[in-house]
């Protein structure tokens, strides 16, 4: 009789250690961040870089505190959030309407295709002269610049998402007698296109923050204007304060948006 030895293999999957893995991940992230701040702190300290050009992170909290105490931080943030919210809302609503209309109607798409090709490549900043001529250096001018950037992103996202809706689902509406454009839109097209539309909105959420700075640089009060003022006074630590402020605000908004998005799309596998 011969003994048959089966090749030794893994008898079971290696034990999962989710808690340890999680800790390791947090630890690594913290280590990386600390290293980044250390290098940043060291560069101006050892004189490799002039501290006028790159402020050390240790001076940031004091600058932040002073800016809060003077009230400048709060007023800049609230002004910018105002432009941001209104610009985002205007651009998103118009983009959604335009994208849905051209997505649903071949006539609308054919009529607008060359208008779109002409206007689309013009960057938001190129509209600054017109924004100033039409609205002056005002809140409306900033809103206008922001809305233009948002409009195109949402327009193309909505157009593509509506176009991509499964014809089979539209047939379901037809088979149950829902044949008007309105019924089609609200029962099938919009809910089916929602994932694509939300991706566009999330992109616009980030894009609009960049536009906020661009729109305020020419003098409309807000974060961007404050940054330009600070940089012209070589108050670089203030510039960093506002850079971090923007990062934090964006991070917060994006986190909230993702939570809402997850809830709206909870039907997805």
């Amino acid at each position: 009789m011969t003994d048959i030895t089966l090749p030794a293999g893994p008898t079971a999957a290696p034990p999962a250690r989710p808690v340890l893995d999680g800790l390791r991940q947090v630890g690594l992230a913290a280590a990386g961040l600390s290293l980044f701040i250390l290098v940043w702190e060291a560069l101006p300290r050892i004189g490799l870089i002039n501290s006028m050009l790159l402020p050390a992170p240790s001076v940031i909290p004091a600058a932040f505190w002073a800016e809060i105490q003077s009230g400048a931080w709060a007023s800049a943030v609230s002004a910018s959030l105002g432009h941001y919210t209104i610009g985002l809302a205007v651009g998103a609503v118009l983009g959604l309407v335009g994208g849905v209309a051209t997505g649903m109607s071949q006539l609308a798409e054919d009529m607008t295709s060359w208008v779109v090709r002409v206007l689309r490549p013009i960057p938001g900043l190129a509209w600054v002269p017109f924004a100033i001529i039409w609205f002056g250096v005002s809140q409306s001018a900033a809103v206008f610049i922001i809305a233009i950037g948002v409009f195109w992103i949402v327009f193309f996202a909505a157009h593509g998402a509506i176009r991509g809706v499964d014809r089979d689902l539209i047939e379901v509406a037809d088979a149950f007698g829902f044949r008007s454009a309105r019924e089609r839109l609200f029962k099938i097209l919009l809910p089916a296109a929602m994932p694509g539309i939300l991706v566009g909105l999330r992109t616009a959420l980030g894009q609009a923050w960049m536009a906020v700075v661009a729109a305020e640089i020419f003098g409309v009060p807000g974060l961007g204007q404050r940054m330009i003022q600070a940089s012209s006074l070589l108050a670089t630590e203030l510039v960093v304060v506002y850079m971090l402020t923007m990062a934090a605000l964006y991070g917060l908004l994006d986190t909230v948006f993702v939570a809402v998005q997850r809830w709206v799309l909870r039907w997805k596998a």
Binding site: V172, A175, W267
Partner: peptide
Amino acid sequence: AFVFQDSRLLPWRPVIENVAF
């Protein structure tokens, strides 16, 4: 009333809302 070869349920509606469609 029509029953398709593939069920063609609307994925964003819970079962009861699909039936009530």
